[in-house]
Nucleic acid binder design. Structure first.
Ligand SMILES: NC(=O)c1ccc[n+]([C@@H]2O[C@H](COP(=O)([O-])OP(=O)(O)OC[C@H]3O[C@@H](n4cnc5c(N)ncnc54)[C@H](O)[C@@H]3O)[C@@H](O)[C@H]2O)c1
Ligand SMILES: NC(=O)c1ccc[n+]([C@@H]2O[C@H](COP(=O)([O-])OP(=O)(O)OC[C@H]3O[C@@H](n4cnc5c(N)ncnc54)[C@H](O)[C@@H]3O)[C@@H](O)[C@H]2O)c1
Lengths: 212, 212
DNA sequence: GCTGGAATGTGAATTTTTTAACAAATCACC
DNA sequence: GGTGATTTGTTAAAAAATTCACATTCCAGC
């Protein structure tokens, strides 16, 4: 039952499945049922089967899913079967943490360019990568075939960073700065904001207290 | 129309509204309609009115919402009208970036304790805060009235960190490590994983290419 | 103090997402 | 080769979230 439109929530869950399946693999589990995977991910088992059904049939009835095979299938479904070249704009606290994070390249998102406008930072080497002046963005995007731009500048600079990236021909942008930006409709834009998890925690803690 | 159960998506959107409303305020806008706010947040205007209706009536018919008043009302709704004391476990790349991030205290989440198990890090001062040995967690949680625990340890240590936090009497946990952990049901647990944004970007970029 | 234009709050309609249920497929064991 | 225990893929039902539509309220201007 391949399908056209995929819910955002499904993408997020598939990412979780990969994570949990990788743990299973490390533990030496070869085959897993939707029931068992569901429990580990705190979701309903038909949810898992439905999510997978958007992309194809990956299991064996009466048996379950072969862990390694399923990981590969999900990655392919998510277009994560090849590496993506990323460029990071704004090498501050957060930018540095991301540059040093090994998981990016392990997951197929390879940060190949790091840009900043601060002359004191330009030329510095972080995690084997030289910080380059933002003005060189257009040249570097082409040279390194960058496809995804990561914005970690202060919020008031995010729009400018986006403009540079778009002008340079990037295809998608992940914005970590807490400000809304506008880009042409053919550019895929994602906002990362984990504060809502803090709000949610605060909300539910106080709510539970109130119930007592 | 006050209500019992609040969708998670509503909480996340309310956080966005606060962000965008703060921008409006900075620009000097005093009154805003749901239509205009909706446009800035890329959502439907009745979505906004519905989200707010879960908590009360904050607008004036025929006029709109008073920006500052609405910010205050949403914050109160989200139980964000008082500060929350947080403790961070695992002062590595990410932990440091969070400790240095001013936005936390500005938003009412004050990181009062930083813990690590690495003897080389214990005693070090980061952003005016001394890194303390994880073993002192129970004592510090009580001393500093910590309510929310932030886990930024490597994934294989996340469960242990959670156990410490739970044992020490924390009320909620935000886990930045990419591993599922288990905690008693009265502890509110949130997972932060921004990789799904990268997967979503990759997926949609390739999908758009395929359409052409 | 009336009137027209504007914008909220909300019940109803629609759409989307999740869950349940079960027929179809697989395999171990006899 | 048949049988029963499993577990998938999928259709149908249920639940949840979003959007529509409009009665209700407010205000500015006359
Ligand atoms: N630090 C965190 O934990 C954290 C968490 C969530 C969100 N954020 C957001 O991420 C962004 C970065 O945070 P940070 O703590 O790293 O801030 P930071 O001030 O440490 O770093 C910002 C960097 O961007 C550079 N910069 C500014 N304008 C630029 C431009 N036009 N082009 C290229 N580079 C430019 C600055 O020189 C600096 O190096 C902020 O928007 C922040 O709100 C940070
Ligand atoms: N760096 C990033 O950009 C990034 C992004 C997303 C997720 N994460 C996740 O966040 C976590 C931290 O990432 P990082 O890059 O900061 O790693 P890191 O290795 O730099 O830091 C981990 C820190 O945790 C400490 N630690 C280990 N076990 C501990 C324990 N039992 N109690 C207390 N402290 C302990 C270590 O001493 C170290 O200081 C990882 O799980 C990582 O996958 C990181």
């Amino acid at each position: 039952m391949k399908s056209e439109h995929i819910p955002k929530a499904t993408i997020a869950r598939l990412a979780t499945y990969i994570q949990v399946l990788s743990e299973f693999k490390r533990e030496g589990t070869d085959v897993v049922s939707s029931e068992r995977l569901a429990e580990a991910c705190s979701v309903n088992s038909s949810q898992i089967r439905k999510d997978l059904a958007y992309f194809g049939e990956f299991g064996v009835r009466g048996v379950g899913y072969y862990v390694q095979e399923l990981i590969t299938s999900i990655k392919r479904s998510l277009r994560n079967d090849r590496a993506w070249n990323c460029g990071l704009v704004g090498v501050g606290n957060l930018g540095r943490a991301l540059l040093r994070h090994r998981e990016f390249s392990r997951k197929g998102f390879i940060i190949r360019g790091a840009f900043d406008c601060d002359p004191y930072k330009i030329g510095e080497i972080v995690e084997g990568m030289e910080i380059v002046c933002s003005r060189q963005l257009p040249a570097k995007v082409k040279e390194l075939s960058l496809e995804i731009g990561i914005i970690t500048t202060p919020p008031e600079r995010a729009q400018r960073a986006a403009n540079y990236l778009v002008g340079a021909g990037i295809k998608g942008i992940i914005n970590f700065a807490p400000s809304r930006i506008s880009v042409p409709s053919h550019i895929h834009l994602e906002y990362v904001d984990f504060f809502h998890h803090f709000y949610a925690a605060a909300f539910h803690i106080r709510f539970a207290e109130h119930q007592e």
